[in-house]
Amino acid sequence: MVIHCEHLVKIYQTADAFRALNDVSLDIAPGDFAAVMGPSGCGKSTLLNILGLLDEPTSGVYRLNDISTADMSDRVRSRTRRDHIGFIFQSFNLLPKLSVLQNIALPMRYGNLPRKDILPRAYELLQRVGLADKADRTPQELSGGQCQRVACARALANRPELILADEPTGNLDSKAGEDILSLLRDLNRSGITIVMVTHDDKIAHGAKHIIRMKDGEIV
């Protein structure tokens, strides 16, 4: 299994100790394309953050590629994020001061790839998402759909086995949304496991299977 979760619980220590995840158990096999659906506040993004090692569960077991994440140091978590996970966010999260090419190169800058190989690899990824002519543009000069394609290219930078997409079509019109979905399906076909959070039924049905959540639980 790429992802194996047992009895995950996430409690936010607010005044009323909000339980964002409640006993979530989940397995995602290599090459799967799972869509996580549910209403706002049901814990979809919390689950995705834990799966992406951006956050830690209050209790429960999370194994990534059969390795327990419980005792991982910050350094190992960062390295795992860098080498094994690609993120796609609803609001793209591209750095506005960097060019499109430099944005794609960014994850590689934290890796071990020789410097001379970084930009050619970034350019190759840009070609793959069909934006080779926008390499020197800044994200502000691109449309939402183009920005999300750049984010997809960035997610692929260090050749991850897992892509976590948090509402990747949430800020896009339906045409651009379909393009991104089609891109994700292509990536999935090339062997990358994808977990996508969405509240759009149509987009969710593009995945191989759907996980429905409500009130912090899988239903």
Binding site: G52, D74, S78, L95, L106, P107, Y110
Partner: peptide, 13 residues
């Protein structure tokens, strides 16, 4: 900082 951390930057980075 959050974006860089998500993309693999460590605390030291």
């Amino acid at each position: 900082i959050g974006i860089r951390r998500a993309l693999g930057a460590s605390r030291l980075d």
